[in-house]
């Protein structure tokens, strides 16, 4: 099977064979549904939600639909490339639909069919899972989508971001790409997935997993990181004062990633943890507010 065959049949398509085919087809599905195809954000983030294309675009009244892949770094989940399921960096395919369409669940299920999941011969369910991000001051209501017991997607109706109530409500779909690929291929280990026809996931990514795990658990200099956290925070605030909103948000993201590194290094006690999260949230909330103040009107213009 080649890629053009895949693209030809959408509903009940034959399963793609490789990781990159799956990504490609999902992107194509959502592009065909009218989404702007964006690129991953170029600073470290823990989830696709942190990309400004989600966090900032869901604010305000302007309709917007977007799809992108976001490599997501979770330092504490690193396993030196030894665990078949857990990764320092995994890939999320993120879809934002604003406002949320009425047939969104059907649309989502069609996207699964487009990557060859035969809906009627599996156990697919939407189980309550309400999402909250304390660092972003964001929360939403929705489900984890389970495919034969495996969580493959987080499906959320956004209710708040940056402490601001959202209206219209956006729907966020976050596909766990490695899990979906493992499911489709029947592979037990993510490292044995085929990335393309020549290379495995392991060949392409294993070294990165091993080294970044070692860095986040053993090497990272916690004094430096605490310093960086403080510096990034200051710079973010300085940007706020200069009403330079997007750069401010970058520094908010850097704080968040630095916090994650410190956390994985075990350098944060429980109380400090609460306090640091509150500091990042304060930055996110201020950024969201400024964004709406300064750009809210231009958006609908």
């Amino acid at each position: 099977m080649n890629q053009s065959d895949c693209a030809a049949s959408r509903d009940g398509a034959e399963a793609p064979q490789t990781f990159q085919d799956i990504v490609h087809r999902l992107l194509e599905f959502w592009m065909d549904s009218g989404c702007v195809a964006q690129q991953p954000y170029d600073t470290e983030v823990g989830a696709g939600t942190m990309h400004p294309e989600t966090f900032l675009r869901v604010l305000g009244p302007e309709p917007y639909s977007v799809v992108y892949v976001q490599p997501s770094r979770r330092p504490a989940d690193g396993r030196y490339g030894q665990n078949p399921n857990r990764l320092y960096r995994h890939h999320q395919l993120q879809v934002i639909l604003k406002p949320s369409p009425e047939d969104i669940q059907d649309l989502y299920l069609k996207s699964l069919a487009s990557i060859g999941v035969e809906l009627e011969s599996h156990d697919i369910r939407f189980e309550e899972d309400n999402w909250e991000s304390p660092t972003l001051g964001a929360w939403g209501v929705g489900w984890q989508v389970l495919l034969d017991g495996l969580e493959i997607t987080q499906f959320t109706y956004f209710q708040q971001a940056g402490g601001i109530e959202l209206m219209p409500v956006s729907v966020e779909l976050t596909y766990g790409l490695e899990r979906i690929a493992a499911f489709i291929s029947g592979e037990d280990s993510v490292y044995r997935l085929r990335w393309n026809r020549e290379k495995t996931y392991g060949q392409i990514r294993w070294l990165e997993e091993a080294e970044f795990s070692r860095y986040s658990f053993e090497v990272a200099d916690t004094d430096l990181l605490f310093n960086l956290f403080r510096l990034y925070e200051e710079e973010c605030r300085r940007c706020h004062e200069a009403r330079c909103v997007l750069p401010a948000y970058d520094y908010c993201l850097k704080c968040s990633h630095t916090f994650n590194l410190l956390d994985s290094r075990g350098a944060i006690s429980v109380t400090e943890r609460v306090a640091l999260i509150a500091r990042v949230r304060a930055l996110a909330v201020a950024t969201a507010r400024l964004y709406l103040e300064d750009h809210g009107s231009q958006l609908s213009a």
Binding site: H122, D123, L147, D148, G149
Partner: peptide, 10 residues
């Protein structure tokens, strides 16, 4: 196939 999936997750 469904059972296989559940067993793999478990």
């Amino acid at each position: 196939r469904i059972l296989q999936g559940h067993e793999r997750v478990l």
